[in-house]
Computed example of a mutant assay.
Amino acid sequence: MKRIIKLFLLSFAFLIISGCNTTRGIGYANPEYQNYSISNVAVYVDNAGDSGRLLEENVVNMLSEKGAKARGVRDLAKFSTSHEEFVEKVWALGVKEVLVLVASDSSGSSTVGYQSFGNATTFGNSTSMNMTTMPMTSISRAIRVDAKLYNNNGDIVWAGDAKREASGLAFIGDGTMTRNAAMAVIQALEDSNTI
């Protein structure tokens, strides 16, 4: 009986840790710029948290791996006194495009049931029983990214969105979530022949 309980707890722990996850991205090229391709791009993620920083780093690295010259500009935004000053600083870098990513990050948990286990001991005419009940909690997280690529005239040449949803402890950390969200953005850009 103890082996069955241990096997059940091990299986339950595996399910909680692994969970499930989905990632998808879709992009749309502006018909006026059908053959536009990213060459020298500034990447800005409009999210002040650590997830935003990691998402920007991942997108910059992945664009660089695809042969585009890419750089993050979060630090310029931090030290600009106005939106206009920030935009001037970005274009002064000599970039040809700006990829703006607006990211939202949400998480939640819910109790999906309870697991009870215990034991009973009989001695003579008396029986004593111990029981422990534990809640089974499902943890989930989602990152959604709205992306727009602007050329140096201020025109939107590409627009897309990406979504990463995961549950379980193994797939909801910042690193995994932002890396997969970045991959979805890059895949959407590739599917639109923009990189």
Rank of each mutant, 00 (worst) to 15 (best):
142 A>H: 11
155 D>C: 08
147 A>C: 02
122 T>D: 04
99 L>Y: 12
30 N>C: 12
3 R>C: 07
22 T>Y: 13
48 A>P: 05
74 R>C: 07
71 R>E: 08
172 I>H: 07
77 A>K: 08
106 S>K: 02
117 F>A: 10
164 R>G: 11
113 G>C: 00
162 A>D: 01
5 I>E: 12
170 A>W: 14
145 V>C: 08
11 S>D: 01
165 E>P: 10
5 I>C: 07
122 T>N: 04
64 S>D: 15
154 G>C: 08
148 K>S: 15
85 E>F: 11
39 S>D: 13
173 G>E: 10
111 T>G: 07
12 F>T: 12
23 T>L: 07
19 G>N: 04
33 Y>H: 10
84 E>Q: 11
95 V>H: 06
194 T>F: 05
93 L>S: 05
109 S>N: 15
150 Y>S: 06
175 G>N: 01
31 P>N: 03
43 V>M: 02
130 N>P: 12
170 A>P: 02
84 E>K: 05
14 F>E: 05
110 S>L: 09
98 V>I: 08
67 G>V: 02
108 G>S: 12
152 N>S: 15
160 G>M: 01
116 S>T: 08
63 L>G: 09
169 L>V: 00
81 T>V: 13
51 S>G: 11
192 S>I: 08
5 I>M: 12
62 M>C: 12
60 V>T: 09
83 H>A: 15
82 S>H: 04
142 A>R: 12
43 V>N: 02
193 N>Q: 13
64 S>M: 14
156 I>V: 13
16 I>Q: 15
160 G>R: 03
188 A>T: 14
87 V>N: 14
91 W>H: 08
11 S>Q: 06
93 L>Y: 00
49 G>K: 01
159 A>E: 13
132 T>C: 06
6 K>M: 07
79 F>L: 05
68 A>W: 01
13 A>I: 03
142 A>P: 03
107 S>T: 08
182 A>L: 13
173 G>Y: 08
72 G>E: 00
30 N>I: 10
2 K>H: 12
14 F>I: 14
141 R>Q: 01
108 G>T: 05
4 I>S: 13
82 S>V: 00
119 N>A: 11
124 G>M: 07
65 E>G: 10
37 S>W: 04
49 G>S: 03
190 E>F: 06
178 T>N: 04
174 D>K: 10
44 Y>D: 07
28 Y>F: 14
31 P>W: 04
143 I>N: 15
127 T>N: 04
134 M>S: 13
153 N>E: 15
98 V>P: 02
32 E>N: 14
9 L>I: 01
53 R>I: 02
126 S>L: 13
121 T>D: 14
71 R>Q: 14
193 N>D: 09
99 L>N: 06
179 R>P: 05
51 S>Q: 05
49 G>V: 03
166 A>Y: 02
131 M>F: 13
45 V>T: 11
134 M>G: 11
149 L>I: 09
189 L>Q: 04
125 N>C: 01
110 S>M: 09
158 W>S: 06
19 G>V: 00
